[in-house]
Computed example of a mutant assay.
Amino acid sequence: MNLVDLKNQGDAVREKIENAFNDLRKFLEKEEGIIKGQVEMQEEHFLQQLEESATQSGGNPVTVEHLIADIKKKLPQEDIPLLKVRRLASSF
Protein backbone atom coordinates (compact mmCIF):
# COMPACT_ATOMS: atom_id res chain seq x y z
CA MET A 1 0.00 0.00 0.00
CA ASN A 2 1.38 3.39 -0.86
CA LEU A 3 0.84 6.75 0.79
CA VAL A 4 -1.89 7.83 -1.68
CA ASP A 5 -3.91 4.66 -1.03
CA LEU A 6 -3.56 5.16 2.72
CA LYS A 7 -4.76 8.76 2.45
CA ASN A 8 -7.73 7.71 0.30
CA GLN A 9 -8.64 5.05 2.84
CA GLY A 10 -8.46 7.61 5.65
CA ASP A 11 -10.66 9.99 3.68
CA ALA A 12 -13.22 7.23 3.07
CA VAL A 13 -13.33 6.35 6.79
CA ARG A 14 -13.76 10.00 7.75
CA GLU A 15 -16.60 10.35 5.23
CA LYS A 16 -18.36 7.25 6.60
CA ILE A 17 -18.05 8.61 10.13
CA GLU A 18 -19.39 12.01 9.08
CA ASN A 19 -22.34 10.39 7.27
CA ALA A 20 -23.12 8.18 10.26
CA PHE A 21 -23.17 11.18 12.61
CA ASN A 22 -25.31 13.18 10.18
CA ASP A 23 -27.80 10.28 10.06
CA LEU A 24 -27.74 10.07 13.85
CA ARG A 25 -28.40 13.81 14.18
CA LYS A 26 -31.39 13.53 11.83
CA PHE A 27 -32.71 10.56 13.80
CA LEU A 28 -32.33 12.39 17.13
CA GLU A 29 -34.00 15.54 15.78
CA LYS A 30 -36.93 13.44 14.58
CA GLU A 31 -37.19 11.68 17.95
CA GLU A 32 -37.00 15.03 19.76
CA GLY A 33 -39.91 16.31 17.68
CA ILE A 34 -41.96 13.21 18.42
CA ILE A 35 -41.33 13.42 22.17
CA LYS A 36 -42.05 17.15 22.27
CA GLY A 37 -45.32 16.49 20.45
CA GLN A 38 -46.26 13.80 22.96
CA VAL A 39 -45.49 16.11 25.88
CA GLU A 40 -47.57 18.88 24.33
CA MET A 41 -50.52 16.54 23.73
CA GLN A 42 -50.30 15.20 27.29
CA GLU A 43 -50.16 18.72 28.65
CA GLU A 44 -53.24 19.74 26.66
CA HIS A 45 -55.02 16.60 27.86
CA PHE A 46 -54.26 17.40 31.52
CA LEU A 47 -55.29 21.02 31.14
CA GLN A 48 -58.58 19.98 29.56
CA GLN A 49 -59.22 17.53 32.40
CA LEU A 50 -58.42 20.19 34.98
CA GLU A 51 -60.79 22.64 33.33
CA GLU A 52 -63.53 20.01 33.33
CA SER A 53 -62.79 19.20 36.96
CA ALA A 54 -62.97 22.88 37.92
CA THR A 55 -66.30 23.24 36.09
CA GLN A 56 -67.73 20.20 37.84
CA SER A 57 -66.65 21.47 41.27
CA GLY A 58 -69.50 23.96 41.18
CA GLY A 59 -67.54 27.05 40.33
CA ASN A 60 -65.48 26.97 43.51
CA PRO A 61 -62.10 28.60 43.02
CA VAL A 62 -59.44 26.03 42.26
CA THR A 63 -56.16 26.44 44.11
CA VAL A 64 -52.73 25.50 42.82
CA GLU A 65 -52.55 22.81 45.50
CA HIS A 66 -55.81 21.34 44.22
CA LEU A 67 -54.51 21.31 40.65
CA ILE A 68 -51.26 19.63 41.69
CA ALA A 69 -53.11 17.00 43.71
CA ASP A 70 -55.41 16.34 40.74
CA ILE A 71 -52.46 15.90 38.38
CA LYS A 72 -50.71 13.56 40.82
CA LYS A 73 -53.85 11.42 41.03
CA LYS A 74 -54.13 11.19 37.26
CA LEU A 75 -50.45 10.62 36.44
CA PRO A 76 -50.28 7.00 37.60
CA GLN A 77 -53.42 6.23 35.60
CA GLU A 78 -52.01 7.55 32.35
CA ASP A 79 -49.66 5.64 30.11
CA ILE A 80 -47.02 8.22 29.24
CA PRO A 81 -44.66 6.63 26.69
CA LEU A 82 -42.36 9.63 26.46
CA LEU A 83 -38.97 8.04 26.68
CA LYS A 84 -39.03 4.81 24.78
CA VAL A 85 -35.78 3.26 23.82
CA ARG A 86 -35.90 2.92 20.10
CA ARG A 87 -33.59 0.85 18.05
CA LEU A 88 -31.37 2.81 15.77
CA ALA A 89 -31.68 2.03 12.12
CA SER A 90 -29.42 -0.77 11.03
CA SER A 91 -27.54 1.65 8.80
CA PHE A 92 -25.76 3.14 11.82
Rank of each mutant, 00 (worst) to 15 (best):
I71E: 00
E78R: 15
Q56Y: 06
L67C: 09
I34M: 07
G37Y: 03
Q9S: 03
L47F: 12
L24Y: 13
V39F: 06
F21A: 05
H45A: 08
Q9C: 00
H45D: 08
L88G: 01
T63L: 00
K30H: 12
N19E: 09
E52M: 00
K16H: 11
S53K: 10
K36W: 06
F21C: 03
G58W: 08
S53H: 09
D79A: 11
K74M: 03
Q77G: 06
H66N: 15
V39E: 01
T55P: 00
Q9I: 05
I80S: 03
S57D: 09
I71P: 00
S90Q: 08
A20L: 12
A20F: 10
K30C: 06
S57N: 13
E29T: 13
G33K: 02
E18A: 15
N60H: 07
E29K: 15
R14W: 13
E78C: 08
E52S: 00
Q38A: 08
K30F: 14
S90C: 05
P81M: 10
L6W: 10
E44N: 08
Q48I: 12
E78M: 14
V4F: 05
G58M: 10
L88R: 07
S90N: 07
P76F: 09
H45Y: 09
R87K: 15
F92E: 11
L67I: 14
S53R: 10
S57A: 09
D11G: 07
S91W: 13
Q56P: 01
Q77H: 05
K84Q: 08
Q48P: 00
E44H: 10
L83N: 06
I71Y: 01
E40K: 10
A20G: 07
V64I: 14
F27R: 15
D23N: 11
G59Y: 02
G33M: 01
R25H: 10
D70C: 02
F27V: 12
R14P: 01
D5N: 05
I34Q: 04
M1E: 04
R87E: 11
G33N: 03
V85T: 03
L83E: 04
P76S: 14
Q56H: 10
G58T: 07
L3G: 07
S91P: 00
G58L: 05
N19A: 07
E15M: 11
K36C: 02
N60W: 02
I68D: 04
K16D: 04
L3S: 13
P76T: 14
Q38T: 09
E29W: 12
K36G: 02
L75I: 14
D23W: 09
E31V: 08
V4H: 01
V85Y: 04
L83F: 15
F92N: 12
T63F: 01
N22G: 03
V39T: 02
F27A: 14
V4M: 03
A12I: 00
E78H: 09
D23C: 07
A69N: 09
E65G: 06
H45S: 09
N22W: 12
A54Y: 02
S57K: 11
I68V: 15
Q42M: 08
N8T: 08
Q9A: 05
L6H: 04
E52H: 00
V64Y: 10
K84I: 14
L50S: 01
K74S: 04
P76C: 08
N19S: 07
L67H: 08
V39K: 04
L24D: 06
V85G: 00
A20C: 09
I80A: 05
Q42N: 04
L50Y: 01
G37C: 03
H66C: 08
